[in-house]
Amino acid sequence: MQRSKQVSESIELGILLTLAGGFMDAYSFVCRGGVFANVQTGNILLFGLHLSAGEFSQAFEFFLPILMFSIGIALVALIRYPLRNFQKIHWRQIAILFEALILLLVAFIPQSNNLLANNLISFACGVQAESFRKIDGTPVATIMCTGNLRSAAQLICDSVYTKERSMMKRGLMFYFMIAIFTLGAVLGNLCVGLWRESAILAGAALLAAAFVLLLVRHDAE
């Protein structure tokens, strides 16, 4: 598989973003009241369960992250075109720096305001989901695993019949990113055990490293 010339699609950046994705999901679930920052399918399920039980206030707590995730996606979709020709800084650099600053803010939000913390993290995840969607030209999610798992199994099975090694490599790449996401979740859980609310600073550090990578190896898009 040919390596992408765009740093925004590089495996190095994908690793940092996927580590951050797993970290944020573990942090929000373990430290912020059992809400998923990234996996909106889980939040939609829990929203429906509480709604059917007439627990409207609890349902609202799971609905808001879904909304904020969508707003994060919409924001990037709206601003990336006006900023495409901005010379001093790439729009993806702005997006990832903004995401890191949001996580920095979350570190100082107390447990009494977990709803705000979760909404901010979900918003940041929406920004990441829309800004970084490919690795080496292949659509890959850095904040969730379900689609990656399907793609991995399909590509590897297809490679058995087609004998195309590129399909096998792409399939293995998906499994590799799933392993990286899992590692991010492990790190997130360990950091929460050590630092509680402040653990999200480690997630912000991962995004800061990704920002530096984008800054040094500028994307000439």
Results as ranks from 00 to 15, higher is better:
N43I: 12
A100S: 11
P110I: 04
L155M: 13
L75V: 15
A124T: 08
A179S: 09
I156Y: 07
M177T: 06
L101I: 14
Y175F: 14
E61V: 09
N85I: 10
A100W: 08
A124M: 12
S122W: 11
R170Q: 13
G48K: 08
A53N: 14
R150K: 12
M68A: 12
P82S: 06
Q128M: 09
K88D: 10
L155E: 06
F62C: 04
L105E: 04
I102L: 08
L46W: 11
V76I: 15
I71M: 02
N119M: 15
L67S: 03
L104W: 03
R170E: 13
Y161L: 14
F181S: 05
I156M: 13
L149S: 04
E61Y: 09
F98C: 05
V76R: 04
E55T: 08
F123H: 02
A152F: 05
F108E: 00
L104P: 00
F86I: 11
G137S: 02
Y81P: 04
F174A: 03
E130F: 14
Y81G: 07
M68V: 08
I73R: 03
A100Q: 05
Q58I: 12
A53Y: 12
V140I: 15
M177N: 02
N148D: 02
N119I: 13
L103E: 01
S151E: 04
Q111S: 14
L49E: 04
N114Q: 07
I73L: 13
L104T: 10
L120Q: 02
T146S: 10
I156C: 10
A74R: 06
S151D: 06
S151N: 07
I73T: 11
S122K: 05
F47G: 00
S112M: 10
D136Y: 05
L101A: 12
P139L: 07
N114D: 13
N148W: 03
Q128E: 14
R170F: 05
L46R: 09
Q128D: 10
A153M: 11
G126E: 00
Q58T: 11
N85T: 11
A179F: 15
M173C: 03
L45C: 10
F47L: 04
T162F: 06
A153W: 07
R80P: 02
Q128W: 08
I178M: 09
R165D: 15
K163I: 08
I71L: 05
P65V: 07
G171R: 02
F56L: 15
S52L: 13
D136T: 06
I121Q: 03
L49A: 08
V127T: 13
K169G: 01
N119H: 07
M173I: 04
L172M: 12
R165Q: 13
F108I: 06
I89P: 05
M168H: 09
F86S: 04
L67I: 15
L49P: 00
A129F: 15
R84D: 14
I66K: 00
L97E: 01
